[in-house]
Design a protein around this nucleic acid. Structure first.
Lengths: 244, 244
DNA sequence: GAGTGGTCTAGACCACCAA
DNA sequence: TGGTGGTCTAGACCACTCA
């Protein structure tokens, strides 16, 4: 039996199931790290065959939103697990040394969105935002100067203490403290030179070349939730990119 | 009926089919741009069901090795098509202007692989290589200084004339002239400062910050076939990276 | 052994394209 | 109208995990 409804714009069933599952994720029915119902249970719930649910889950797994584990079940992806802790960090040591990243908190203040940030985060100009600055060090040496802006509405109560507690993994902290899970990010890279404030934080002379990484992170439903500018020293590290 | 053979290390049938299809691609049975047989034909040929062939093709399509077109057929991906012409170029104009890239040939000489290149390209130290230098300009302004090294054995007869004819798309030229199709690439990015030779080619002062993109490209079977170092001016352009 | 995801099949029907 | 890929189903069996 074909369950395809009369639809002006054709949409495969598995896509509709995918939307339903995503909605349950947004609604918090299944939280990060938890197991979702089995394929057969979902098939019964949505009144479709197991194969159709399977395809929907396949797509979500390909986007790293769900994690399949044979013999165990399907789980909501999380930034908490060790392996995925720094999933968006593409900077790796040239020598392949084990990373000993440390987080040095600099500041956390309340600000208002200017026109640039409002456009990126999809909030009104002047909307309340929270601005964090921090320094990531590698084996004691400064590596990245981070400047982070998030909408205050979604991160009520975010402060310096929470940033310090996060031990460097902001995403893990967003998840456990605010229930905001990032699923995707876009980065724009440039080569720039260190300006005064950054140069002193990184212990460099002004004019030193830095890799500028501007990142926008998205939560479920492709909603932008964080803007970030990282200025990175790439003497002993490089940014890895795989093209397919 | 399950066609799974007795195998010490379990390998799904569709994976085996994928290997068979890949071998036909390597062997040149179906050339870039051509249509491969329909799913049913391949299913008959390999004595499996259409669904199994489908899954194998799905995987190859996800890797951009094959291109599916509903109603028409499945085609071998190529770098010739306009849309995929500069598939590996992630540098885009900040303003979103239409790109008018031009290729300025600088040099093409015969060289020998040093230990670094030999390791990367998987050839012996001292093996014959061909070294190309060129300048890519955007609307007349220098943008990228490229330094390219390929193994001479796979590119017999590559010379300056062929590079000039390529109009900037080396991959398209590799494909039509040498039957070498790149399917994947890895890039390492760093921020550096312009050295003398590069600075003069790009019309900059020494010490100007540049984005250094070191790329290794792979052909079928993950065989490395090109090393490339691009030094890019990122005043009006940035490198886009999507993280999932 | 029970439960989960993973594979494979066979067949029906739909959407898209070209002649 | 015929051929291609795309969707959906139902059912069988395999591989993995854990109690």
């Amino acid at each position: 039996m074909n369950k395809q409804l009369i639809s002006p714009s054709y949409r495969p069933l598995y896509d509709q199931i995918k939307v339903l599952i995503t909605q349950s994720l947004i609604g918090g029915e299944w939280r990060p790290g938890e197991m979702i119902p089995s394929e057969f249970e979902l098939a019964a719930r949505y009144k479709v065959s197991q194969g159709t649910v399977r395809k929907a889950i396949d797509n979500l797994a390909a986007e790293n939103i769900l994690i399949r584990r044979q013999g165990k079940g399907t789980f909501v992806a999380t930034h908490k697990a060790d392996v995925t802790k720094l999933r968006f960090l593409r900077l790796t040591s040239v020598t392949g040394d084990k990373e000993l990243l440390e987080n040095k908190f600099i500041s956390c203040i309340k600000t208002k969105a200017d026109s640039y940030i409002s456009k990126i985060l999809g909030v009104k100009v002047g909307a309340a935002t929270i601005e964090v600055k921090r320094l990531l060090t590698f084996s004691g040496r400064p590596l990245i100067y981070d400047h982070i802006i998030v909408p205050a509405a979604s991160f009520k109560g975010l402060n310096g203490a929470k940033v310090e507690e996060s031990k460097g993994s902001m995403y893990s902290m967003y998840e456990s403290q605010f229930g905001v899970r990032m699923i995707r990010a876009e980065e724009c890279l440039k080569a720039v030179v260190a300006e005064k404030e950054v140069a002193s934080a990184l212990g460099l002379k002004e004019g030193y070349p830095l890799l500028s990484i501007e990142r926008v992170s998205f939560t479920y439903g492709d909603k932008p939730m964080e803007w970030r500018l990282g200025l990175c020293l790439t003497d002993d590290h490089h940014y890895l990119s795989e093209l397919e």
